[in-house]
Structures are given as C-alpha cells and as structure tokens.
Amino acid sequence: MSLPLARLQHQFLQAIQGAETSLAEHIAPQPGRTPTERLHIYRRNSQSTCHNALQAIYPMTCAVLGPACFQTLAQHYARDHPAIHWNLNQYGTELPVWLTHPPDTFSALSDLPYLSDLSRLELLLHQAYYAADAAAFPAADYAALTAREQVQARLQLTPATGLLQTPWPVYAIWQHWQQHGTLPPTFHGLDAPDALCVHRAGLQPQVSRITNAACQLLTQLAQHSLATLATRSDVASAMPELPDYIARGWISHFILPR
C-alpha cells in the first residue's frame, strides 16, 4: 500500500535527520545500493550542506578544532539543532551557546574555554553582513524634541550592531586572521579581556574595541531612557561617547515612551 504524499515526505525528512522509518519499504529496488543506502545519500547530502554552512560562518572555530573534529562537531550540532529555516544563513546561530555545554563526546572542548566567545564573534560578523539596512539616525527629529523628551528617549542599535564582552583575546585572534588568514601561533600574551562592538562600516562588517562601560551602555540602550542611564555609575563614563556612536552608524533611531 502506498504512503499518502504528506506521510511519505514526513518520513523522508525524518530519515534525513537520522530517525528510523519504514520509508525504505516504499522505495523501488534497484541494482547496486539498497533502498536504505540510497536514502543515506540524501542524509549525507543534507549533512554536507549544513556542515558547509557552519564552516562558512565559523572559519576560525573550524581552524581551532581542525577540519575532521569540526565535521564531527557539525554532525552532533545538527542532531541537536536541525535546520528549520530555508535560509542557510540562519543556520548555526546556536553554536556559540551549544559550545558552552557540548555533549560528553566533546569533553575536550573544556580545554578551549575561549572557543564559545570566538564563535560568538564570528556569528556577530556573519549577522552584521546579512543584517537589514538601516537609515541614518534622524538627528533633526531628535533635535526638535523638548529637552525632557530628549532624555526620555530610548536609543536603538542598528540591526547590524552586536556586542561582545569576553575575558579572552578574541579581537587579537580575529585581527591575525584578517591579516594572515591563519590563527596566531599562540594565544598567550595577546591582549585580553575584550569588549567589542561589531558593526557595518559602509557595507562591510567591522570590529571595534570599546570600553566595558561602552559595552554595558550600548547593551542597555534600548531598554532604558537616557535619563536613567545617566544615573548609572557603570555606564556614565561612556555617555559622552554617544554622539560618536551615532556618527559611526551604530545607532539608527530613537523611541519615545508613550
């Protein structure tokens, strides 16, 4: 008895993701490979596509681990986070968090405590590249607000802007990668810790080192009014830099409270 089309397609996707199904019973026998082996071709194709997508986003992470280890890691990651969007640019976004609690098979990753933050930087660069375009900050509109409205405003980061605070020298590693296409021979002695702002300068993603206070300020900008932030000792020192952040295109607009 033949499978209804929807059932057949459901089983095909399950088989690709490694689940046991009865689909092989519905595949015509052919010389050479068995139906199950033929299904595995599709599974390997899908794994290969996801692996390639992951490698494109995380080239430094791949270089740290080596291609063979990264490929195995990509397979385990795919089991935990199968592709759920047609756009492969959106695949792999959970890897930095996944790397903080990998499966037992990858217990050796605990010797690479910086890896999650390094991959986080790579993800922010990837997301900055594909982020939606943003208009310039409406300076005239902001200037037209009353003084009270101006301090009540909440400034919003552009979609391309992302932030990272890390105890590891990921900026120095990235700089070396940009200049030489390789990892530094040793990570010892590199500048750390880092607070970084990933943004788009023109059309290309860039990384800028910022102070911890600036990172805190930019992280909390969207949630709090300028008046509130000005009272906070952990971010106050960065407040004078806001016009510069606007000029650099990190902030796209403001929201007023209702």
């Binding site: 033949s2 397609q9 690709i16 194709n45 596509t49």
Partner: peptide, 25 residues
C-alpha cells in the same frame, strides 16, 4: 521536487513519486 516538510528542512531536492495524484498536486 520537495525540500521541506513542516519545519524540517532538507536543503536538498527530494524526489516525488510519479503518480497522477502527485502530478495534479
């Protein structure tokens, strides 16, 4: 072909059965 089913993505071009019903679909 078909590529996905529900939220599950294959990122591949998966074959259809060659039936009259599938052709109409």
């Amino acid at each position: 072909c078909f590529c996905h089913q529900g939220a599950a993505q294959s990122h591949d071009l998966l074959p259809l059965p060659y039936t009259a019903d599938t052709a109409a679909h």
